[in-house]
Write a protein that binds this DNA or RNA. Structure first.
Lengths: 144, 144
DNA sequence: GAGGTCGTAACGTTAATAGTTACAACCGGC
DNA sequence: GCCGGTTGTAACTATTAACGTTACGACCTC
């Protein structure tokens, strides 16, 4: 489906900041997170920027600057993250509007839209069941 | 998410063939379906080719050739179609493997994989609840 | 053999994600 | 006040997948 890694990287960044803060540090830098996620700091800053707009993290500039959580990991769900970093729908309609003279062409979009809406709602319910605290717990539970 | 329209077009094509056959025709051509879906016949042939490999349609070549259903619309679910035309996973992992020296980098992929597996399983359950017959019924129910 | 359709390769187009470079804005600490 | 490190963001490139299009051989019915 040409899936992307935005949700994965965003969860990675939040879990990293959360753990780092529990270790007593005030802020985390995009550089540190990018090293852990093996990507570019700008990619991290862009994603965290969207999460800041949604109210989950805060950033400070200047000396000793960096990122910190604005909410506890327990209170952030994967649905929150998903909505912050994944704008579009799961399934797309036709690129060009189908033939409206054809019975199927006329009715297919409302029909599929109704079905897709129900499926996306179910996806959201599943995402809402997992918190970032759950993610961090699973991360730390990985066998050595 | 950069969603694609493969599932939509595939459902459109199957519903179209199903309705056409109920109207007494033996086979439908990719040209006819493409006109209804407002796309190119080759796109339809490619998609139907994957559905044929999965056993849902048959094709005949030569004069008076075209496509026909190999199974009833009632017995084909959106999950069947999804699996036939959407290979990849819903969410992607990191492009480059994260830093294995970092606790989070080490544990993040197994953690997210477990979560994603559960979510995809739930998506499949939802897709399995809808048959192509349901789709065609909804299509025909669209208000004029 | 003629005509129409499938099957598929090959190529171009479009769009989103991701990666990279660059630099101004910012601010704590000295 | 300025130095150093970091964010914020623009701009560009690279990569990838879906989609569209053209072309043509394979195939089958008449």
């Amino acid at each position: 489906m040409s899936a992307n890694s935005r949700l994965t990287i965003a969860a990675h960044a939040l879990a990293w900041i959360g753990l780092y803060q529990r270790q007593g540090h005030a802020v985390a830098t995009s550089e540190q997170i990018a090293t852990s996620a093996n990507t570019n700091p700008v990619v991290i800053r862009r994603l965290l920027g969207e999460l800041r707009r949604a109210g989950f993290v805060e950033s400070r500039r200047g000396g000793g600057a960096g990122w910190s959580l604005a909410r506890e990991l327990e209170s952030i769900t994967l649905l929150d993250v998903y909505e912050a970093v994944e704008p579009g729908p799961l399934f797309a309609m036709h690129r060009a509007t189908p033939d409206q003279e054809c019975v199927v062409g006329y009715g297919i979009q409302p029909a599929m839209q109704g079905i897709y809406d129900g499926i996306e709602e179910s996806l959201r319910r599943e995402l809402a069941r997992v918190t970032l605290q759950d993610v961090l717990r699973d991360v730390l539970a990985a066998p050595r």
